[in-house]
Simulated assay, not measured.
Amino acid sequence: MKIDPVFIWTAFVKLLSALPMTLFITAISVGAGLVIGSIIALLRIYKVPVLQHLAAFYVTFIRGTPMLMHLFLVYFGLPALIDAVSGAFGWTFKSSSVPILVFVLIAFSITAGAYLAEVIRSGILAIDKGQLEAAYAIGMKTPQALWRIVFPQAFAVSLPNLSNSLIGMLHGSTLAFTVTAVEIFAEANIVATTNWKYFESFIAAALLYWGITLLIEKAVAVLEKRINVYNRGGVA
Rank of each mutant, 00 (worst) to 15 (best):
Y198T: 11
I25F: 02
I212N: 04
S122P: 06
A219S: 15
G87M: 11
L78K: 07
A181S: 07
T174M: 13
G87H: 13
I184K: 06
V235H: 12
L208D: 08
I120C: 11
A204G: 05
S95H: 05
S158F: 11
T178H: 07
V182S: 09
W196P: 00
F103R: 05
L166K: 02
L42G: 10
P66C: 04
S86L: 08
L23I: 14
P79I: 11
N228Q: 09
A176V: 15
I227S: 02
A112I: 10
V74A: 05
V220R: 15
P49F: 01
V150S: 04
A204K: 01
P152A: 03
Q153W: 10
G168R: 03
L162F: 06
N189P: 00
L170V: 00
T65S: 06
G233F: 10
A176E: 14
G37A: 04
G211P: 10
L125Q: 15
L105T: 03
V50G: 04
I28F: 14
G233H: 11
R44T: 01
M169N: 04
I106H: 10
I124N: 12
A88M: 09
S201W: 11
L116M: 15
I28W: 02
G77H: 14
I227T: 03
A154C: 04
A221N: 14
W210S: 08
H70K: 13
G172N: 02
L71W: 00
I39M: 00
T193G: 02
A56K: 13
F108N: 10
K141D: 13
L215R: 08
S38E: 08
A154L: 07
V229R: 15
L34F: 03
Q52L: 05
T174L: 10
G113I: 06
E133N: 12
S201T: 09
T142W: 07
E200Q: 13
G37K: 01
E187H: 03
V50D: 02
K197Y: 09
V74H: 01
I212T: 10
Q144M: 14
K225C: 04
V59D: 08
M67V: 01
P160I: 14
D83I: 01
A18S: 13
G90A: 05
I227D: 00
A88T: 06
Q144D: 12
A205G: 11
T65I: 03
Q144F: 07
Y115K: 05
I124L: 12
V104W: 03
Q131P: 04
L162Y: 02
A114N: 08
W210K: 02
S86W: 08
W196A: 12
H53M: 04
N231T: 03
L19N: 09
I62C: 03
N195L: 01
R63F: 05
T193K: 01
K225P: 01
V235G: 05
I110L: 15
V119W: 09
F57C: 07
M69V: 02
L214D: 05
A107T: 11
F76T: 11
F93M: 09
T22N: 02
V104D: 06
A221P: 04
F103N: 09
V35M: 02
R232T: 08
Y46E: 11
S122H: 08
I212Q: 04
F199C: 05
T10K: 13
G31M: 01
I3Q: 13
M69C: 02
V119L: 11
F24Q: 05
V30N: 00
P66G: 03
V222T: 07
L166I: 01
E118V: 09
F202G: 07
